[in-house]
Structures are given as C-alpha cells and as structure tokens.
Design a protein around this nucleic acid. Structure first.
Lengths: 121, 121
DNA sequence: CCTATACTGAACCACATGGTTCAGTACTAC
DNA sequence: GTAGTACTGAACCATGTGGTTCAGTATAGG
C-alpha cells in the first residue's frame, strides 16, 4: 500500500520541485490555458513549456486536450490529496518527536527542582 | 514574500521526490540514527547515504552532529509547515476550480430543464 | 491556394542526480 | 601502537533535467 504510492510521490513531488511548474499549476487554477499562453507568461519557448506540461501531466496534476491546432491545459483530476496526507502524517510524527523531547526536558526540570529542594533541606 | 520561499520549495519538494529520502525522514521520526545505520537500512554505501542526508540537510529537514567518529542525524527544525500550507492553498484553488465547473454544470442542467418544460408546454 | 499560427519531435547542451569505488583521515579499544 | 570502525572526499559513470534551436506537420483564415 505504501509501496503503491512511491512512484506517484516521486513524480508529484518532483513536479512540485520546480518554480515554473508550481507557477503553471497556480495559473491553471485561475483559468485553462494553451501552451502558447503559458510559454509567454513564463517567458520560455513553446518546446520548453511543453516539457513542463508533460511533467505535470505525467504526475497526474494536469490534463490536456488538443482541439484544432490548440492544446488546452487544465488542472487534472488529482488534487494532491495523497501528498497532503503524507506531509500531514509526517508532521505528526515530527511533532510527536519534539513533544517527546519536551517531555525529557520537563523530566529533567522536575529532577533538577527536586534535587534543589533536597539540597535546600 | 512568495518569492522568498521559491528556493526553499525547490529544495524541500526536491528532497521529498526520492523514496529513499522520504524513508530516511520516516526513520528519523522514529529515532535518531548514524550514517552507517541508515546506509544499512536502505542498502546503500555510506557515501551514497551521506549524499541523501546532505540533500535533506540542505532542505533544512535534517540536522546532523558529529561526535567522535559517529555523525548522528536528527530531524531538523523545519517540519514542512510552508510546504503543507502551499499544498493546502493549492487544494483550495483546485477545488474552487471544480466547484466552478459544478456551478456551470448546474447552470446547464437548469437551462435544460427549463427548455424541456417549455417544450412540454 | 497561401500564409500565419500552434504545436511537435529530434538533437543538442550544460549541469544535476543517484549511485558507485577507492583512498584517505580520525577516533576507539585492546 | 595497531587494528578495526565510521566517516569523508575525489573521481567516475549513466541517466535525468531544464532549457535551447531547427525543421517539420497540421489547422485556420482570407
């Protein structure tokens, strides 16, 4: 089950690791766009933009459809649910880890206090 | 402000785009570990693992400290807060986009219904 | 039919990535 | 002091990435 998602996470996090692609996603969240429109907005050749769109498509984050000579790009069916869940789960482990440390610190404080009060006797 | 995070997102999402590194993070959430321990667990040379740890360190997700000959790796101070926030914001844009479509579909349905009832008259 | 537009694909480039081996260096323990 | 452990760094390798140019193909519009 965990294994199943591995490849998906590789490609989706990989897709998100580029500023241009994150920008394209945000742009497409506003409105669908052609390759030409995206290429202009991000100051890049058509070919370059097409590659980025390809990466996003592979990751399942974008779908495209060609009508006539125009290929229109839209947000894909996946909305980063699993990725959000992975990060959320990690954040829980992460904070549990720090709570644990906090507990240790608390424990030390308590011992210190006890020692001090013992000395004071 | 948005600009500020760009590089950080590049490196953190980049770090997350590799299954081994995600595994290391999960492992470190359980307990701190040496390079050797991690290398064994993920069946890799020390040098290879050290590179992965370096990437995670660069991304601010892991910190390391060398005591004697052993370098111990721990989870870093950052806990993917900004990344979670970015994804959450994107998911909102994403679902807003689909709600919009739903609205259009609803609109069409209403028109269709109206047209039908008009025909029926 | 002709021209401009929109994309596509192949080829190339420099540089990054994920891994390795090999030859150190530095510390631990007997 | 010597043997083994733990890491480190340089060098190498294959493959991937982010971009380009250039030469197409296919469609739209007059």
């Amino acid at each position: 089950m965990v294994q199943y998602y591995q490849g998906q996470f590789d490609s989706s996090f990989g897709a998100l690791s580029d500023a241009t692609r994150r920008g394209v996603l945000e742009q497409l969240a506003r409105e669908d766009a052609s390759i030409t429109a995206l290429a202009e907005r991000f100051q890049m050749t058509l070919t370059g933009m097409k590659k980025h769109v390809g990466v996003l498509e592979q990751a399942g984050l974008v779908t495209t459809e060609k009508v006539g000579r125009v290929r229109t790009c839209k947000l894909g069916g996946r909305g980063l649910e699993e990725e959000a869940a992975w990060i959320e789960r990690y954040r829980q482990l992460w904070s549990a880890r720090f709570d644990e440390l906090d507990a240790v610190v608390e424990e030390l404080k308590r011992k210190e206090k006890k020692a001090r009060s013992t000395n004071e006797k």
